[in-house]
Simulated assay, not measured.
Amino acid sequence: MTRAERAAHVDRRLEELYPETPIPLDHRDPFTLLVAVLLSAQCTDARVNTVTPALFKLADTPAKMAKVPVEKIKEIIRPCGLSPRKSQAIRDLSQILVEKHGGEVPADFEALEELPGVGHKTASVVMAQAFGVPAFPVDTHIHRLAKRWKLSEGRNVEQVERDLKKLFPRDRWNALHLRIIFCGREHCSARGCDGKSCLMCRELFPPRTKPD
């Protein structure tokens, strides 16, 4: 298969495997999604989902969160790791949303990336999942599988994102990035597949006899 043929196969096959693409992080609106994505850095979605109910019960809007002491936020989110940095970022971005954006999460990449603790990946997730704007957030699963499936040779997430955006139609990005994550967790994980044993690797590279 050529790279384009592999991309088409991945797109078609993952849609069959995962016709629905629920967002793994529990949230109610753009703000709670933004906070959940921020908390997911170096933490599993499952762990984040155990922490956010208590946090959002305490404060579920920027105006409310801006009034919560950083120490209180840190106490609740400690299980997610990096709690000193994340708690300060949550408090600070909430204040900025109130002061500069009328208490709303802006549907704008540049404005999102100016918020404390919000990088390009987090902004991309929020734009894609909260506002429906085509984006292709690249996490560790997508970075690994793009290389394993020979969709990109990029050594960093920026290059992988550019390569995948060129390979797949724009209107497929939002669902596809979630489908690749689902497949990476369920079938083609770092330890569960050596590049030739899962269903996707077998279909893409039937002659492959050595681990990738």
Rank of each mutant, 00 (worst) to 15 (best):
M1N: 15
R3G: 04
E5T: 01
R6T: 01
R6M: 02
V10G: 04
R12F: 03
L14S: 01
L14T: 00
E15K: 13
E16F: 04
Y18Q: 08
E20G: 05
I23M: 07
D26G: 01
D26V: 08
D26S: 11
H27D: 04
R28N: 08
F31Q: 09
T32R: 08
L34V: 04
L34E: 10
V35L: 12
A41M: 06
C43L: 06
D45L: 03
N49L: 05
T50N: 08
D60V: 02
P62L: 13
P62R: 12
A63V: 15
P69Y: 11
P69M: 11
I73K: 12
E75L: 13
R78Y: 15
P79Q: 09
P79Y: 14
C80P: 07
C80M: 14
L82R: 15
R85P: 06
S87R: 13
S87P: 06
L93E: 05
L93W: 10
S94N: 09
Q95G: 14
I96A: 01
A107I: 07
A107T: 03
E110D: 05
L115R: 03
P116Y: 04
V118Q: 08
G119T: 09
H120L: 06
A123D: 00
S124G: 05
M127K: 00
A128E: 02
Q129S: 15
G132M: 14
P134T: 15
F136C: 03
V138P: 00
D139P: 10
T140C: 09
H141K: 05
R144N: 01
A146D: 04
R148N: 08
W149T: 09
L151V: 04
S152M: 05
G154A: 14
V157E: 10
D163H: 11
L164V: 04
P169F: 06
P169T: 03
P169S: 12
R170E: 14
W173D: 02
H177E: 02
R185F: 05
R185D: 06
C188Q: 02
R191K: 03
R191E: 02
G195D: 00
G195T: 01
L199W: 11
M200Q: 01
E203V: 03
F205G: 01
P207W: 13
P207I: 02
P211G: 10
